[in-house]
């Protein structure tokens, strides 16, 4: 999921960084003090998740957890994921400083999209099966959209879109399944133990 340095063209890098910066600005706008610790926790979860390799057959990819981050944080997923990807680049050499914007965008935008697509299912009034379905779908779709966006970034630099996107999507199929289950398990646990964490985002404003 992390695009290396020297692969993308400057136009794609700058465009991605600009959109990511806009997303981060939107996420940081009128931030509540109560949300900062949960942002930190989810940022740490995102940071560590990429170390968990999923070896299935010849494929070895890692977890992303951006669906979970998006569901709980909404637009605030952008700054949380930016911190995570920055630390990935600095400490693990996954991706790089120049690709920071594109990598953040590729992982944070799907998180926000899933927040809008499936967030309704996590409102406190929804039934258990609806809740599970929404959480699972969010975990899956975030990874799916991320894969497609990575393929699209490569396409903008000149690679053929279909093979590139197909490859990325294929590699992340097992991850999608695992992430869906993980997201569902995590949010179910939160609903039981700390429902206010979920209600913070979904409370009517």
């Amino acid at each position: 999921m992390h695009i290396s340095e020297g692969v993308l063209s400057p136009a794609v890098l700058i465009g991605g960084a600009a959109i990511a910066a806009a997303g981060v600005a939107a996420g940081l706008k009128d931030i509540d003090q109560k949300e900062i610790p949960s942002m930190g926790i989810l940022s740490a979860a995102f940071f560590v998740a990429s170390l968990i390799h999923v070896p299935v057959g010849p494929v070895s990819v890692h977890l992303i957890l951006n669906g979970l981050v998006g569901l709980i944080l909404g637009w605030k997923a952008f700054p949380a994921i930016l911190v995570g990807t920055a630390l990935h680049a600095l400490l693990f050499q996954f991706g790089g400083i120049t690709t920071l914007g594109v990598n953040t965008l590729n992982m944070a935008l799907p998180a926000v999209i899933c927040y809008y697509l499936f967030g309704w299912g996590l409102k406190s009034g929804s039934g258990r099966s609806v809740f599970i379905f929404a959480a699972f779908a969010s975990g899956c779709c975030a990874v799916l959209i991320s894969s497609i966006m990575v393929g699209f970034s490569l396409y903008l630099t000149g690679e053929a879109f279909l093979p590139a996107a197909k490859l990325v999507v294929a590699a992340h199929l097992p991850v999608m399944f695992i992430e869906g289950s993980l997201t569902a398990a995590c949010t179910l646990f939160l609903r039981k133990v700390r429902p206010e964490l979920l209600e913070g985002v979904y409370a009517p404003k």
């Binding site: 999921m1 992390h2 290396s4 990429s50 390799h53 057959g57 010849p58 494929v59 070895s60 990819v61 890692h62 693990f92 050499q93 996954f94 991706g95 490859l167 294929a170 590699a171």
Partner: peptide
């Protein structure tokens, strides 16, 4: 399913 192996680095 026909992808070769890959990870993030």
């Amino acid at each position: 399913y026909h992808a070769p192996a890959f990870a993030h680095k």
